Amino acid sequence: MTDQRTGTVLVVDDDPTNRLLLRRGLEREGLQVETAVDGVEALDRLAAPGIDLVLLDLLMPRLDGHEVLARMRADARLRHVPVIVVSGADDTAEAVRCIELGAEDFLPKPFDPVLLRARIGASLSRKWLRDVEQDYLQQVGLVLRAAGEVEAGTFEPTTLDAVAGRDDALGGLARTFQTMAREVRARERRLEQQVGALRIEIDQARTARQVAEITETDYFADLQRKAASLRGGGHIRTEGP
């Protein structure tokens, strides 16, 4: 997410003078600026993240502004990137067509720098608010999924680390889920340790009982007497004819 002070604007215009003037003006406003000479270059740059706003000319070689708008609207990754058309075509029909194709605003050339600056600021502010909203909704989705995982016993606390860093109610709920899960894990570990200790005691008791069953027999007592006799140097009397 970016705001107006740090947003990145892509200037798309085949006229090098226009690109230079727009770059200088936008950079004076504290914006980052990238440029493209036509629609093909523009779409190539937009394929990578980082562009917050597009200033788009219409009449360009290879791929014109109308086609750029159409392709951006057809692409789920790009349809929410705001586009301001800056064109020499100064008529209402052209402006309507561009807006129908997905442009957020339309300014005829030559444009008023003050008006352009205001339109850019408004567009970036709307994008920033939308980014905040989308981020919030995504994190709400993570918390809702975590609720089901907590109930199913499959929740991993680290999956909510990003949400837990928030200082609002959603962050508090995420931290609560994490605390609950960690407490459950701790209880499970203690229970496993107790069960393990109990198994050892059971095994020891079973072994002691088996030993007792053997040592308490007449046969074992007879073996003990014979062993004692041998240790004393005596002879073992065996029964026979």
Rank of each mutant, 00 (worst) to 15 (best):
D3Y: 10
Q4Y: 12
G7Q: 04
T8F: 09
V9P: 01
L10Q: 02
L10K: 03
D14R: 00
T17F: 12
R19G: 08
R28M: 07
G30P: 06
L46G: 10
A48F: 08
I51W: 01
L55K: 01
L58R: 07
L59D: 07
M60A: 00
R62W: 09
L69G: 09
A70I: 14
D75T: 12
R79S: 11
R79Q: 14
V83C: 04
V96W: 05
C98V: 00
L101R: 04
A103Q: 07
F106Y: 05
K109P: 05
F111N: 00
R117M: 06
I120D: 15
A122Y: 13
R126L: 13
W128V: 11
R130S: 12
L137D: 11
V143E: 01
L144Y: 06
E149F: 01
E151H: 15
A152L: 03
T154S: 00
F155M: 01
L160N: 00
A162V: 04
D167A: 15
G172S: 10
G172M: 10
Q178A: 13
E183G: 14
R190S: 14
R209M: 12
V211H: 12
V211T: 12
I214D: 09
I214K: 07
D222E: 10
L223E: 06
L223V: 07
R225F: 11
G232V: 09
